[in-house]
């Protein structure tokens, strides 16, 4: 079994992702209430090995990964791939480069 981070951190992570998706009124969303409810239900008092709890933790971990990765992917998509074709200057600018100015050509008029 892989080491998983503690439930309350995963829970907070998921709620944070929901907030990032929904904005300030995220507490009214379906997912917010369901996630909180599930985490409360699956709390156990003793530290005994509980298969159902491990399953729930793995599922919540997976869901957090799904939400976070989708957000990251969308951010990168919008940044690099979402705008169609770019001009050469803009492409060079993304990687922190500038196009060379030709001697005697543009930029050397003065």
């Amino acid at each position: 079994m892989a080491a998983l981070s503690p439930p309350f951190r995963v829970c907070r992570g998921i709620l944070r992702e929901i907030r990032a998706m929904k904005g300030p009124e995220y507490k009214q969303s379906l997912a917010y209430n369901y996630v909180l409810d599930q985490f409360r239900k699956n709390q156990v008092s003793s530290e005994r090995y509980c298969r159902a709890q491990v399953e729930a933790l793995h599922a919540s971990h997976t869901y957090l990964c799904l939400l976070a990765s989708t957000r990251h992917h969308l951010t990168l998509h919008n940044l690099y791939h979402g705008k169609g074709e770019r001009g050469p200057e803009e492409v060079a600018g993304i990687v922190g480069l500038r196009l060379p100015t030709q001697p005697g050509g543009k930029g050397w008029e003065k």
Partner: peptide, 28 residues
Amino acid sequence: VEWAHDYDMYELRARTAAGTLFVHLSSE
């Protein structure tokens, strides 16, 4: 390279997580 490696990795993670969750939720 962020726009190739990270982009691919996050997409792969999202797809894999979705598939895994789908298996677990639909079999439970």
